[in-house]
Simulated scan of single mutants.
Amino acid sequence: MFNLIRKDFVIQKTQILLFIPFIMFFAIFADHMSPAFVFFLASTYIPLNGYIYDEQVESNILLNSLPYTRKEIVAAKYIGALAYMILSIGIASIILYLFNYEFMIRDISIAIGLFFIFSAFAFPLFYILKPGYIGAVVLVGVIITAVVLPPFFRFLAENLTVITDFLTSLSTITLYLSGAVISIMLYLTSWMVSQFIYQRKVF
């Protein structure tokens, strides 16, 4: 399974070389942007590129001819995404620090939560959508996440005072722990859904 995880890193050499300039761009020109969103973009960079590449070259046909079970193929994607998310956020933290782009641990925590939630909904789509649509759907999904979520949360804060009062009554630790549990559960559920879909997919 390790070789399946390493595959995404090996086949994306060119894209990975663009990762550092990609983060540097935000560090230099997007100082008004939330650090949490920069970390979120960094965390999804390698996993999403891996899925898009697999779709373009139809690598699932090759993978299913190798001595790996379909359960292992899906597991490698989800475990690999976690590994690359941690690596990407670590590199992004160093770059932002070197460019004096201010951020806090809270921003990293929020980005990790967003990664889990976004991946939980996006990853199963890669096993459902027809080839040729994945890249467009991912791009639209990232844009929608960036554009819609902040106004949505502001709307909830302004209009649903019962919910906001309840949330503000909770301690910071409770909020973070609750968010972590919910996002991880969504990710694990997504893993099971993807496995169910992939087991029945015909190549």
Rank of each mutant, 00 (worst) to 15 (best):
P35Q: 13
F37E: 07
V38W: 04
F39T: 05
F39I: 04
F40I: 14
F40V: 02
F40G: 14
L41D: 00
L41N: 03
A42W: 01
A42D: 01
S43W: 02
S43K: 06
S43V: 02
S43P: 01
S43A: 05
T44S: 12
T44P: 03
Y45K: 00
I46Y: 08
P47D: 01
L48G: 01
L48C: 03
L48Q: 06
L48T: 04
L48W: 03
N49E: 05
N49V: 09
N49Q: 07
Y51E: 15
Y51P: 00
I52N: 07
I52M: 02
I52K: 00
Y53R: 01
Y53E: 11
Y53K: 02
Y53V: 01
D54I: 13
D54Q: 15
E55K: 02
E55Q: 13
E55H: 05
E55V: 12
Q56A: 14
Q56Y: 10
E58Y: 05
E58L: 05
E58W: 08
E58I: 01
S59F: 15
S59T: 14
S59A: 13
N60P: 12
N60Y: 12
N60M: 11
N60D: 12
I61Y: 03
I61N: 00
L62E: 10
L63N: 08
L63R: 12
N64V: 13
N64T: 10
S65T: 05
L66C: 11
L66S: 11
P67W: 09
P67I: 04
P67L: 06
P67C: 02
P67M: 06
P67G: 04
P67D: 12
Y68G: 09
Y68I: 06
T69I: 09
R70M: 10
R70P: 07
R70G: 12
E72L: 10
E72R: 01
I73P: 02
V74E: 04
V74D: 08
A75N: 09
A75S: 14
A75F: 05
A75K: 06
A76R: 15
A76D: 06
A76E: 06
A76W: 03
K77I: 12
K77Q: 10
K77M: 06
K77P: 05
Y78H: 15
Y78F: 14
Y78G: 11
Y78M: 08
I79F: 07
I79Q: 04
I79W: 04
G80F: 00
G80A: 02
A81P: 03
A81M: 12
L82R: 06
L82D: 10
A83Y: 10
Y84P: 11
Y84C: 01
M85Q: 15
M85N: 09
L87K: 08
L87R: 00
S88E: 00
S88M: 00
S88A: 08
S88N: 08
S88Q: 01
S88W: 03
I89R: 08
I89S: 09
